[in-house]
């Protein structure tokens, strides 16, 4: 069992995303420590990519700020290593396949193990293409997280049966970003998943308020929040860590005890 399972050990998990290097690496480090202090159960660190096709404007702009600020894959791996010395919270990277491919699967996943990263989320790596990365990743004990979308239908079972770490359920059509309403029938998707997999399933895309988090956590194993956190970083820049703490705490409190 991977370290990721620990994130789901104490009730519903709150999974917090932040773009590495936005606006600089040191702010990312401080924000993540605040997220952990506020109760985040799993940290997703985004390695910025020039053309993030699954992201809405908020995370696109964060990637651009990070890259313009000079953040590289090595810098983000570096901050993850630093954080590992300070916290044992489960952590995964989130990035696009080209970033990992170009770095080299061997080099990337061996560094993940060295650092103590538990997994990687790659939105442009569907089930059919997963093997080229997951074969190398599994050698180093790194989980390649599978995503299931509202359009997955009969693919749900195939994907879920093959999944590792946790299952990332995409709440809505479209790209990442805050949504006022989530219309997908998530409960039936989660029922399908549970027929074939015992892995925890967390829901992401569009979740920003404690009310949404509580509702979704009531029938899933956790909620994933990205854009709402990245917005706080965009607004407060270097002063973001304390604001990120307040926000993550309000979200975690909303799902505690469910």
């Amino acid at each position: 069992m991977s370290n990721i399972a620990r994130a789901f050990d104490h009730g519903k998990a709150f999974i917090a995303f932040i773009t590495g290097g936005d606006p600089d690496i040191e702010t990312t480090r401080k924000c993540i420590l605040e997220m952990v202090r506020a109760g985040a159960d799993l940290i997703e660190i985004g390695i910025p990519f020039s053309d993030p096709i699954a992201e809405g404007p908020v995370i696109q702009e964060a990637d651009l700020r990070a890259l313009t600020g000079g953040a590289t894959t090595d810098d983000v791996l570096g901050v993850a290593a630093d954080l590992r010395a300070e916290t044992d919270v489960p952590m995964v990277f989130m990035t696009y396949l080209n970033v990992v491919f170009k770095y080299g699967y061997e080099k990337f996943f061996s560094k993940c193990r060295e650092i103590g990263m538990d997994g990687v989320i790659i939105p442009d790596l569907p089930y059919e293409e997963k093997r080229e990365a997951s074969e190398v990743a599994s050698k180093y004990g790194v989980d390649v997280i599978s995503l299931i979308a509202p359009t997955s239908e009969e693919r749900i079972k195939t994907i879920a049966a093959d999944a590792e770490g946790f299952i990332y359920v995409v709440s809505s059509l479209g790209v990442t970003g805050v949504r006022s309403e989530i219309k997908t029938d998530l409960e039936s998707i989660l029922r399908e998943i549970r027929k074939v997999s015992d892995l925890p399933a967390a829901v992401g895309f569009g979740i920003s308020t404690p009310e949404q988090a509580a509702k979704i956590a009531s029938y899933s194993d956790g909620v994933i929040v990205g854009s709402a956190i990245v917005k706080i970083v965009a607004k407060y820049g270097k002063d973001a860590p304390s604001h990120v703490y307040d926000y993550v705490k309000s979200m975690k409190d909303a799902i505690r005890g469910l």
Partner: peptide
């Protein structure tokens, strides 16, 4: 070649 797209598009 291949099909490196988000899961949302795979069925389509």
């Amino acid at each position: 070649g291949g099909q490196y797209v988000p899961e949302t598009l795979m069925n389509e």
